[in-house]
Design a protein around this nucleic acid. Structure first.
Length: 477
RNA sequence: CGCGGGGUAGAGCAGUCUGGCAGCUCGUCUGGCUCAUAACCAGGAGGUCGCGGGUUCAAAUCCCGCCCCCGCAACCA
């Protein structure tokens, strides 16, 4: 029976250039998608862009540009990542796509019909200095940190709310019945105790006159949907829901067999593993199967931020380390789910020792040594072990890669022990035996690398065929 | 306050569930090798496993107490 695999990243908000954290998220998703594909599954790998909201609208206005044109430009920038990082995503959904808008309206209607949407007046704190709404968490001593002297204005507004509070029990049940629902475990604990403490309904619309750049609320022209209803629904609108039921069930799954795997940064824990799941339940749809929560990337022990000037962008990384170098570094930056700390120095060190001196040098010496010997290399179908599959199911790709590098180390040692350059002169038969093992190891490595470093994998295979010397990774000085 | 996660060599981490020589990668020092990208291999130095107590023939691991760091209501990858 054909198996189907679905994975989706979060949708980045298009008000800035692609961020290294998102690059990490999408490369992990890509490796996972390619891995599952190699197991013979049909894969939908979804990503895209979140394009509605006040910030974008304001920015476009400031630059006196048409909003759609403005978001088109940014969406293209994110789509460029595909080439830049050699991504294999099958779907790129934009929240301004017609099929998405249709799905969002349907989602709203269903949740509304089930009685989980209601209208409520509430008070917003508004800072006159910033001309922006402020949430309590943004305030210091009850004041806007940027305008500490000014009183906040309290504005009353009527908006639609989602009855999040009605889903406490069901969410807790979901977490309890599926101990792997959120990976890593500690994030499941965190979200569980968050839900246990009680949930507050959240607002899902804004007044259109204040924020026109969004999806109109069905049946109420004065209101526009707020980010959650709109953006989160992309995970299913991308599959053609609600029109294409077959495709939806194949990939998103059913209530008995949920099939959707999501990956997100830790800042998105609540949105993905609680709010979105509650929305799905509210619309009588199956929940996700699993949500992977990635840690943050810091630079030299500090938060990456523009004001500190320590931002490392995916583009810069690719310029320095190449596509596969960047993929490797992002995939091995640390244990999945933990925060990690990078710096140009550390990245360069790892690149040089693992890629240039490690794998690259090994390929180079084996190719040269094997000279005109001709071995047939052929691969078995299942290159990955049970253990690998287990680790992949927890997104512990750094461990799988570490195991591959153990082969690299062993082979370097093996060459040292057997001294094939001497055998070549003294014992042709033994020489061929030694080289055969090395060549077949390299071929095996190239197969193992396919999901993680597709280009390198190909280059190794080609070098084994043509016997042409390759510098896979130029050493960086 | 409380809940959750963490503290192991200069750096980054594994090991803790199930007690049994404290391990891996990077860096560093010494030696070897010359096929290779000044790459590779071997050996060494470097640890009161956060602190204090307890159980045990034996504790990084189990028990008790304490200290420190991180996260915990919504733009956030």
């Amino acid at each position: 029976m054909k198996k189907y695999f679905y994975i989706t990243t979060t949708l980045p908000y298009v008000n800035d250039k692609p961020h290294i954290g998102f690059a990490s998220e999408i490369v992990l998703a890509d490796a996972r998608a390619r891995f599952e594909g190699s197991l013979g599954k049909e894969v939908v790998f979804n990503t895209g862009t979140d394009e509605h909201g006040a910030k974008i609208w304001q920015k476009a206005r400031e630059e006196a540009r048409d909003v759609q044109e403005y978001v088109d430009e940014y969406a293209a920038k994110f789509d460029e990542l595909k080439k830049m990082l050699n991504l294999s995503y099958t779907n790129f959904i934009r929240t301004t796509d017609e099929k998405h808008l249709r799905a969002v309206r349907e989602m709203w209607k269903r949740v509304d019909q089930n009685g989980y949407i209601y209208k409520k007046k509430y008070k917003i704190k508004y800072c006159i200095g910033c001309e922006l709404e402020k949430t309590d968490s943004e305030l210091i001593d009850g004041c806007c940190p940027l305008h500490p002297g000014k009183e906040l204005e309290i504005i009353e507004e009527e908006n639609y709310f989602f009855k999040f509070s009605a889903f406490q029990e069901k969410l807790l049940e979901l977490y309890k019945d599926n101990p792997d629902f959120v990976i890593p475990q500690k994030r499941l604990n965190e979200i569980s105790s968050f839900v246990e403490r009680g949930l507050e309904d959240f607002s899902v619309s804004r007044l259109k006159e204040k924020m026109p750049w969004g999806v109109p609320v069905p049946g109420d022209d004065s209101q526009v949907m707020y980010v959650w209803f709109d953006a989160l629904t992309n995970y299913i609108s991308t599959l053609g829901w609600p029109d294409d039921k077959e495709n939806f069930e194949k990939f998103w799954g059913t209530e008995e067999n949920p099939n959707a795997v999501q990956i997100a940064g830790k800042d998105n824990l609540r949105q993905q593993s609680a709010m979105w799941q509650a929305m799905l339940i509210a619309a009588d749809l199956p929940t996700s199967k699993q949500v992977f929560i990635n840690g943050f990337i810091g630079v030299d022990g500090q938060k990456m931020s523009k004001s500190l000037g320590n931002v490392i962008s995916p583009k810069e990384m690719v310029a320095k380390f190449g596509v596969d170098g960047t993929r490797y570094l992002l995939l091995t930056k640390g244990t999945f789910g933990e925060d990690s700390d990078i710096s140009w120095e550390k990245l360069t060190g790892k690149y040089n020792s693992d890629l240039a001196n490690g794998l690259g040098n090994l390929v180079s010496r084996v190719i040269v040594l094997s000279g005109d010997l001709d071995f047939k290399t052929s691969g078995s179908d299942s290159v990955f072990s049970e253990e690998d599959v287990k680790m992949m199911n927890k997104m512990n790709m750094d461990k799988i890669l570490d195991n591959i590098w153990n082969i690299v180390r062993e082979d370097n040692k093996y060459i040292e022990d057997r001294k094939p350059w001497e055998l070549k002169k003294e014992n042709q038969e033994e020489f061929e035996k030694v080289m055969k093992k090395l060549v077949s190891d390299l071929y095996h490595i190239s197969q193992l690398l396919t999901p993680f470093m597709p280009e390198t994998s190909e280059k190794i295979k080609k070098a084994l065929e043509t016997k042409e010397r390759v510098i896979l990774f130029e050493k960086i000085r």
